[in-house]
Amino acid sequence: MVRITFIDHTGKSRTVDAEPGSTVMENAIRNGVAGIEAECGGACACATCHVHVDEAWVEKTGKPSPMEEDMLDFAYDVQPNSRLSCQIKVREELDGLIVRTPERQS
């Protein structure tokens, strides 16, 4: 199991167990983590699962694909560490991953 921590804009944190192969977004939805809407269900088509990846993890999670980068245009408060959590696949190396959810998704 891989542990992922979601920190909301007020600083409140939630840590959940995630299975490798799932997406970070799926684990947020499965565990009712607030701040992730995922309106399109993970199709990289809505930008409502936007997260800011903790600086220490940016390298391991990698850069957004061109399609994801296009979709990030629809997100709010986009930063260099912005990702759509439906596009981050959980892997063993991501154990301990920390992501921050923005104040609003849409």
Binding site: E39, F74, Y76, E103, R104, Q105, S106
Partner: peptide, 12 residues
């Protein structure tokens, strides 16, 4: 479906 598709209001 999920309702009608309408322009997204940016959260400004």
């Amino acid at each position: 479906g999920g309702g009608s598709f309408q322009p997204k209001r940016p959260p400004v």
